[in-house]
Design a protein around this nucleic acid. Structure first.
Lengths: 193, 193, 193, 193
DNA sequence: GATGAATGAGAGTTCATTCAT
DNA sequence: CATGAATGAACTCTCATTCAT
């Protein structure tokens, strides 16, 4: 029996790392960062507690990895296309927002729960800013093309609206007036222009 | 000296209870619920650990009390005055929102941090709904008077905007475009009407 | 039942603190610092693991407390009496050394085991130096009175001899030629003078 | 290429074994036995963790091997030459002692740190005695030739002095009065005779 | 022979909660 | 009413050792 090649080891590591991150995301989104114990995450991953520390040097490190990974995926879905009209871009943003909300609930639950917890947020703040910044620039460009005098502020304003909507969509999905909100934002940014 | 009446005892209890809740709110808003230990809260209150359990039967119980109490105070500040025009009421809502944000940051930080943690939120959900419901009704009436076809959905929509704004105002106060946002909401609900 | 006075609490604390330190000294002297687990020390003390941290903020802190306490006691037994002749003082030093070795074996075992372990020694180095320094000054004075040209170096030399003797007395007590060594040192410092 | 002979294999094994022991000695002398993890020693050796267990059946086994090996080397440097005068032999002993201290600090640091930890010392005690015994016999012969009535006890006494000196030379090299000590021992054993 | 992923026991530590006084 | 000593379960994390490849 020949020993495993370093290629094989690398593959094992990558797969198991992802396995652990997926399980951790699930558990943390359900119970919150502090209540999700390493023991529980290990159990959910089908992995020993000890092994977790072969892949992540601490619980904090695991959280950061999950957040950064999840957020890259989230914001990869936000795309500004300059060949389209700004109105079309706004419509895309709205659609993309709800797409993300539907497909990445767990990630977003963790995001929001971490967001307001200074203690934990500090750990990921910088990493998240790096990811969010280019999106905000895209927003700003669209607002400029829509003719807003203060496109930066308007980009923030749209972000705030989408934040409020996202949070409530996750918290009270059954009573959330999705269609109404979509139309309402369109009306604000498109029809009334 | 005559012995204290049971009325006096009750007052002392209420005051000490409030003292503990205030200290707990402070500590929890600074360090987060899990990191704020009972020992620390007791110290901050100037009360022994043992005595805390005379006033609150558990740490969770204390958290619930703080949340409910804080929320009553928060929403007491939201008033709809039917003698005023709906436009004036919207303007009041906006002002009231920022008033609350400025005066009750601690309460709101704790609220938001607890919000996305299912486990804890479940405990206060019903209580909070009781408190929020009448406010939402007020919002709905205003929207009806403003002529919206679906005033319930529009009330929700405004709430979502205010939620998004509140969250970000707390998180990024220094870069928050307050004036712009105030004017923008006025524009949506008043000028354009 | 009236609550305990703060005096009573203080007494309880002092007694239990000493109880833990005694048990810890015993266990550490038998098994070494690293092998002596908090669980074991707690068991030996008849106290819960958790309580240990009510008295010492860490295992390191406990070690330091034990060492400093033990060393104060050890070196309190070394006394230079200037009314006596320097020869008499040397004889006293020798007697005191064996007294200490006979009565404080545990403390000295811990001292020697910690001494050569940089990692652990660093923790107590400064505290121990404070305690040892005055003793060394006493040694130096005696050597000066005995007429040594370099009394500081000679004080060190005597200390080195006593260190070597102490270490071996603890390690190989059954084959240690105690009487011979006592006489030999006397011969070096007294008879031959 | 002809296949390697079993002799060659044996050599390769011995070399790698020594490689591991050297790395382990370095790491253990720096961090102490308990803090020096197998992972770290493996890394320092450039050998996998698994392979280490091919050469040493446990961490303890590795420690014992290091100690025994180091001690053979240490005491190989102590030579009694009966063709020389006993005074010359004493002078050689002193020189050899400082030679060993200067060239084998790491080994000696580990020796001293392990010495007072009963648990570990027990394991190497017998092996060390085997090595030390012939040296002690040499010391005894020299003392007999110097005319001491109890040469065994005097040999011990010299050993204790050298132990005390060695320990302190390792611990406080910068303030150690080396020249003074060398002359002082000469004075005791040679001049005063 | 050689690898490092994987384990499991146990380490130090924290903390909500209880209870004798 | 009031105290803080005391507990015990759970926490994060480490590490010598094993084993499939």
């Amino acid at each position: 029996m020949s020993p495993r090649t370093s290629e094989q080891f690398k593959n094992i590591r990558l797969k198991k790392r992802q396995l652990i991150m997926d399980a951790a995301l699930k558990v943390i989104s359900e119970k919150g960062y502090h209540t999700a114990s390493i023991a529980l995450i290990a159990k959910e991953s089908g992995v020993s507690k000890g092994l977790m520390y072969n892949y992540f040097k601490s619980k904090e490190d695991l959280l950061i990895a999950i957040m950064v990974d999840g957020f890259s995926k989230v914001f990869d879905q936000y795309v500004i296309d300059n060949r389209l009209s700004p109105e079309e871009n706004v419509m895309m943003l709205i659609e993309q927002t709800f797409d993300v909300l539907d497909t990445m609930q767990e990630t977003l639950m963790v995001y929001f729960s971490v967001l307001m917890n200074n203690e934990v947020f500090t750990l990921v703040k910088d990493k998240l800013n790096e990811i969010v910044e280019p999106i905000m620039e895209g927003f700003t460009q669209v607002m400029a093309r829509l003719g807003y005098e203060n496109p930066i502020a308007e980009a923030y304003f749209l972000r705030f609206i989408l934040d409020g909507i996202s949070m409530n969509y996750l918290l009270i999905p059954e009573q959330f007036p999705k269609e109404y909100c979509v139309n309402r934002i369109k009306q604000i940014y498109i029809t009334q222009k």
